[in-house]
């Protein structure tokens, strides 16, 4: 009888944790917030697992992981941060993969302001171009490479013509408000199902900047969690691919 009671007690302790084993934490870089929400919704419907997302800048998520915050899978906005985590031995070996490639767009909140060749940047009448901080945001670094490629960087850098958002979300706000007539943004912020959601834009040719690869990693602490692996596989699957493409990301 006593043994049975111990068994019951053990059951009571372990069963809830078994049931909860399907829950896991996804940390997502802010620029992928909306697509990630849709993918997670589809994933939960298809598998019955529960993914709990949180959103922050890539640098913030990195420092949270380093400071022992519980994250099972991390969808970064760049390739460098996941690589860094890998080099530091913090990830499940071999789990790093590119889930999306971002595109840079020259965008304006005003309809018809940006022409189909992006010439407005050279010839148009504009006062401010919103760019993400190149030190902090991959899209900012790409934007500077593009401006350099077009020979515009020298004349613009450090002048009031360039206004800086500290991340790509803020850069988007600067352009959406119209305060900056132009912005170099992530295509995914202004594009849906084959067209711009508002305003006007020109997709910058991808050979004018280094590819913006967005990598994901499974953290070491989640090495044996089946649901996390299932999510990583789902992210590579057809359904997720369609969602990712619909936001204007490139998939190779």
């Amino acid at each position: 009888m006593k043994k049975f009671m111990v068994f019951l007690a053990a059951l009571a302790i372990f069963i809830p944790s078994l049931a909860a084993a399907d829950e896991f934490y996804v940390a997502v870089a802010s620029n992928f917030q909306v697509p990630a929400g849709e993918i997670i919704k589809a994933f939960e419907e298809d598998t019955g697992h529960k993914a709990i997302p949180s959103f922050a800048s890539t640098a913030q998520i990195y420092s949270q992981i380093v400071n022992d915050r519980e994250v099972d899978i991390f969808l970064s906005a760049d390739a460098a941060t996941p690589k860094k985590l890998e080099d530091e031995g913090r990830i499940k070996p071999g789990s790093r993969f590119t889930y999306a490639q971002g595109s840079l767009v020259l965008w304006s909140a005003t309809e018809g302001f940006v022409d189909s060749e992006g010439q407005v940047l050279k010839t148009g009448k504009w006062e401010h171009l919103a760019v993400a901080n190149p030190k902090l945001a991959p899209y900012g670094a790409a934007a500077y490479q593009f401006l350099e490629a077009w020979g515009l960087l020298k004349g613009l850098e450090g002048t009031p013509k360039i206004v800086t958002g500290e991340n790509i979300t803020q850069t988007h706000s600067l352009a959406v408000s119209g305060a900056a007539q132009l912005g170099l943004l992530a295509l995914s912020q202004v594009y849906r199902n084959g067209k711009f959601t508002s305003g006007s834009g020109w997709v910058v040719p991808s050979d004018l900047y280094s590819p913006i690869l967005q990598d994901a990693v499974i953290l070491k602490t989640a090495e044996n969690k089946a649901a996390v692996q299932a999510f990583a596989d789902y992210l590579k699957g057809e359904k997720a691919k369609q969602i990712i493409l619909s936001f204007g990301y490139i998939l190779k």
Binding site: S57, H128, L136, P160, V163, G165, E166
Partner: peptide, 19 residues
């Protein structure tokens, strides 16, 4: 808009260093 010499203030500078 964090423009150097015009509107970039101390708190932003610290934020950029931290990030």
């Amino acid at each position: 808009g964090s423009i150097p010499n015009v509107t970039r203030v101390l708190s932003m500078q610290i934020y950029v260093y931290v990030e």
